[in-house]
Design a protein around this nucleic acid. Sequence first.
DNA 1: GGACTCCGTATACC
DNA 2: ACGGGTATACGGAGTCC
Length: 790
Amino acid sequence: MTDPLLYGHNQEQYIIAIHHEADGSMEVYSRSSEVLSSKKINFFPFFFLSDTYYLKGFSQKHWIKELNGTKHFRYLCVFERWSHMWDAIRDIIVKYNAGASSTVQTYSELPILHLRADPVSQFLMQSGMTLFKGMEFNDLYRMQIDIETYSKHPSSFSNPNRLEDRIILIALSDNRGWEYLINGKHGSEKEMLLKLVSIINEKDPDVLEGHNIFNFDLPYILTRCEIHSVSFTVGRNGTVPHSFDGRISFAERSFEFTSYEIAGRHVIDTFLLLQNYDTSKRTLESYGLKYAAQHFGFAKPDRTYIKSNLISWYWDHEPETLTRYAMDDVHETRQLSEYLSPSVFYLTQMIPFNYGVAARTGSSIKIESLLLREYIKHRESVPQPDFGVQTTGGYTDIFHTGVLGPILDVDVESLYPSIMLSETISPKSESLGIFLNLLESLTSMRLDAKRKMKSASNPEMKGKYDAMQSSYKILINSFYGYLGYSKALFSDYAAADNVTQSGQRILRHLISSISTNNGTVVEVDTDGIFFIPPTHIKNEKDELHFVDKIAKGLPKGINLAVNGRYKSMLSYKMKNYALLGYDQSIKIKGSSLTSRSIEKFGKTFIKQCINAMLGNNINELHQLYVSMHRNISEHKLDIADFLRTETLKESEEEYLQAINNGARNRTASYETALTSTNKWKPGDKISYYFTGSDMNIRGFENCKLADEWDPNFPDENVAYYLRRLNEFAQKFDVFFQPQDFRAIFSMDDLFGFSPEGISIITQAVKDVSTAMLDVSDTEPHEPKIFLDEE
DNA sequence: GGACTCCGTATACC
DNA sequence: ACGGGTATACGGAGTCC
C-alpha cells in the first residue's frame, strides 16, 4: 500500500499508458506477466468555476458540484465529452467578456475559471490512478530511433519539404539488446517508411525515444510519409500520431516545439530531458547528443563522428562510415535516456501525468497537481493565486577579494525545505493542510532512498535508489518556489518571504559563528559559505570538527555539511569566483568570468589568467596578455574566437514592431538575422562578429554573419576586439596596484617586463560586523532562536 | 564629444 | 504553458556640460 497522498488513491498496478479516445473514454493499457491488455473507462472532463452564473443556460448535459469551503473556485463543473467542455468554455468567455472591462481571448486569461487542458491528467486526478505502479524502470519496453537525411543542396540542411531530399538511414535499438538499421541503399524511402511502421507495430514498444525527436525525427518522418502517401499508423489502436504545439521553459531558457502523442505509447525526447537536467546542475555547455555522451562518460573510444554538413558526402562516398555513425547515435540516445529517464519514471508513479508530459513540465505544476488531486477527492474549494509580490530572496555577500586559502565550502542542507518543515510554513489558503505532509513524506522517502542507495550491493540497485531519491529531490526543492510562483493557485508571498528571511537569519548566524571562532568568511550565497578555517585547523578531520562546532545553535532539522575543500580561491565579486582544488583542478563561476556572452578568445584569456593568478604567476599573466594581443592584431585567430552566439527570442514581426514603437533598441543579433537570407523562428540561434576599424562602433551597424567570414580576407574589427581584450584584462584591476596593473597588461616591453615586487592584493571589502548590523534593518522580529548562544 | 544615468536584455548563481 | 530572488555585464539612447 503506497501513500495515497503521493501516489493517488487508486492502487491499480502495471498501467503502461493511458490514451484519450475519440469517443470520450480513456483507454487504459496495462501489462502484467508480459501480457498487454487494455480496457475502456468512462472519463468526465471538468473545470473549476468561481460562479455558476457563467454556466447558466448551457444546453449540453453537465453537472455542477458545489465544493466545501468558501475559497475562490467553489464549483466543479463536469461534462460528458471533451468537446462539450470546450463548448461551455466558449460560452463562458462570451458571457465574461460581455460584462468585463477588459476582454479575454483564451480560457487561461479567465480569472473565474481554472482548467487543466490535458484530458489524461484530468482523468488521473479524478480516478486517483497513476502510471507504472508496481513496475521497475526496466519493465518499460523502450525503443530508440535516429534518422539520417540527405540534402541535395550542399550548403543547406536537409529539408523534408524538398522532394529531392530524403531519409537515407533509420537506426533503431531497444533496451533488450536488439538493434536494426533500415538502409536507404537497399530500398526506396517509401519502403523504408513502411518497414519502420511494421517494425514499431511488431516490436510494440511502450516508449519511443530520440534526441531532438520532437523537432526533427518525427516531423521529418511524418512529412515524408505524407509525400509518399504512407499512413504512419504506429498507435496501439492503429491511429497516426497526434501533434500539437507546445512551449517549454526550463528556468531562463524557453523555446517552442511540436509535441507528438502516439496512442498507447510515450514519446520521450532526450534533448528535453537534458535541458531539464541542466536547469538544476547548469554544467552543460551544449545539449548535443555527442557532447552529452562525452560529458556523462559513455561515449565509446572508437565512436564515429561526422560533421552534420558532411552527412550527404559520406552517403555518396563512404556509406559504411555513415552507418556506423547512425548506430552510434542511436546507442548514445539509449544510454542518455537510461541516465535521465528513471527519475521521470519514478515521478510518474506519483503525479497524475502521462509519462511524456511528466518529462516536459515544470516542478511547480507537478506539486500543484498533487494538491488538486486531493482537493478534488475531498470536494474542497480551491483558492486563486495570491495578490502581491515576493520581496525577499537569498542572502548574498562578499567580504574579501583576492587570492585566499585554504578554503572550506559549507552549505546548509536543503535550507528552504528544512525551514518550511521546522517552522511549519505553508500556504495560508491550503485548508486541507496537506502541503507540509507532502513535503515531509517526500523528505523521509528521500532519506530512505539515500540510505538504501548507500547499502545497495549491486550497481543496478544503487542506480534505482539514486533515481528515486533524485525524483523526490526535484519535487522537494520546488516547494519553496511554488509559494512565490505568481500563477500557482496556492501561492503565498508572505510565506515565501518568511522562508527566505529565516534563511538569511541562519546564514548570518553561521557567518558570525565562523568569525568568532577565528575563521575568515570570504563569500556567501543563499545557503553556502566559503571561508578560511582558523590556522590551527590542519586536516580534513579538524575541518569536520570545526563545521560541527559552528553548526551548534542551528535550529533543529537544519544541518550543515561540507560541500568542498580547496587549496585556494580567487574571490572577485558576488557570485563570481574561481576555486583551485587539491587535485589542481580549477572551477570558475559567475557571469563576469565565464559566460556565453564572452567571446571564445576572451573566455580562454580569462581562464588562463585565473590559472596564473591562482598559481601566483605574475610573469605568466603578462605573457598571456602580450600573446593574445599579438594574435588579435595579426589576424592569427579563427573567426570562432570572435563570435557571439545569441538566441533570437522574438519573431521578425515582433522585433520590427517593437523597434517601430520605440519599445526596444536595435541589437546586433537581430540586425544580422535581418540581413541573412534565411528566415528565423523564435528560439533559433545566430552567430555573428563585428566588422569595421573603429573600436567604438555601434554594434548593430557593424555586424556580420559568421558564415560570411573569409579566412583569406579576415575583416573582423581588430580595434574593437583589442578593446574587448582590455575589458577582460580590466577584470583583474582590483587585484593589483595601478602601476603594477598597467605594467602587466601592457605591450610596452621597452625595458622588459619584470614581475619583481608585484604581488596580488587581497583585501577586505566589507566587515563581517557590518553584515550583522544589516539584520536589524531587514529583520522585523527578534532573531533570538539561536543568536544568543556561544 | 565624453561622462553620466537609465533601461531593457542576457546570462549566471543558488 | 510557464518555479523564485539576487547579481553582473552590455548596448543603446538620452542628458548634461
